[in-house]
């Protein structure tokens, strides 16, 4: 690996300050499972690596009545270990996380890293999108929030400005009775990237039916199906999804297969979702 310098600031503010000073040549290190691979294969050539794990506040995982607050240094397995997260309405998120990479990788990889890396096939993004998750952003001009879907602007591109970082993801507590589910297609049962993935959320209190499809377009697709909440029409949902997705032919799968599997996953999630 080519050389870079390394710093581990003790606070978010210090990270922001160093990020601003370093200009575009600094990279953030949370779990490192994407960054170290990118440096090794020379996809990125940072002069400075800023380790987020020195900032205590970024390692916090909060789960209370208001929802989840997942700091940028929180590893994926901690989400699975937290009972309040792994059961109930956040289920789509934990299903996605449990299918994301291998157990050992999840001991380093973070949720915020999965989101901000902005890979089209990031498994956590469709669940976060249907759960209305928002990214809390710190930067030179203070903090701001963006819905996760708006944060991601393209393949490995985000709307983070110069010197900005995502400090945590906030998932508002779903209304009582909310159900969510996630499905992923991959080539083996073991760790693999998604050929396509789908999350569905059903919120009876607000009459919401939201679906998000990932790994097909540069940015996951969100479908607002509230109109069919009372009378779900699965084939119409399939058609709507297929209208929006634009998968590619690549070494992992063909367009045709990806489209078929999106349809299958939508049908299966609809079948799994509670009726009332």
């Amino acid at each position: 690996m080519q050389s870079f310098s390394y710093e581990k600031p003790g606070s978010t503010a210090a990270i922001v300050a160093r990020l601003a000073e370093a200009g575009g040549t600094a990279r953030l290190l949370a779990g490192g499972t994407d960054l170290i691979g990118q440096i090794r294969s020379r996809l990125v050539k940072p002069s400075l690596v800023l380790d987020l794990k020195g900032a205590r506040e970024l390692a916090l995982l909060g789960a209370d009545a208001s929802g989840l607050s997942i700091g940028a240094a929180v590893i994926l397995n901690r989400l699975l270990e937290e009972r309040a997260v792994s059961e109930g309405p956040y289920r789509a998120l934990t299903q996605a996380v449990s299918e994301l990479a291998s157990y050992n990788i999840r001991n380093r990889a973070t949720l915020v890293g999965n989101v901000t890396n902005a890979s089209p096939c990031a498994d956590s993004v469709p669940p976060l999108v249907v759960l209305d998750a928002r990214a809390e952003i710190a930067g030179p001009s203070g903090t701001r929030e963006l819905p996760v879907l708006e944060l991601i602007s393209g393949v490995r591109e985000t709307r983070l400005g110069p010197g900005e970082l995502v400090t945590r993801i906030r998932v508002p507590a779903p209304a009582p009775g909310t159900w969510s589910g996630f499905l992923k297609r991959k080539r083996v049962r073991g760790h693999d990237l998604a050929l396509a993935n789908v999350a569905l959320l059903r919120d009876p209190e607000r009459g919401r039916l939201r679906m998000s499809v990932g790994s097909c377009n540069p940015v996951p697709v969100l479908l607002d199906l509230d109109a069919m909440f009372a009378r779900p029409e699965v084939e119409r949902a399939v058609a709507l999804a297929l209208e929006r997705v634009r998968p590619i032919d690549d070494v992992r799968a063909s367009i045709e297969y990806r489209r078929e599997m999106v349809a299958v996953m939508v049908r299966r999630l609809f079948a799994e979702a509670p009726r009332s």
Binding site: V188, R189, G190, H191, L193, V251, R252
Partner: peptide
């Protein structure tokens, strides 16, 4: 060669 790494060349795991 399109799949010259473990990212895209998969072999059976303990789940398979």
């Amino acid at each position: 060669l399109l799949n010259p790494s473990f990212v895209d060349f998969k072999i059976p795991t303990a789940k398979d």
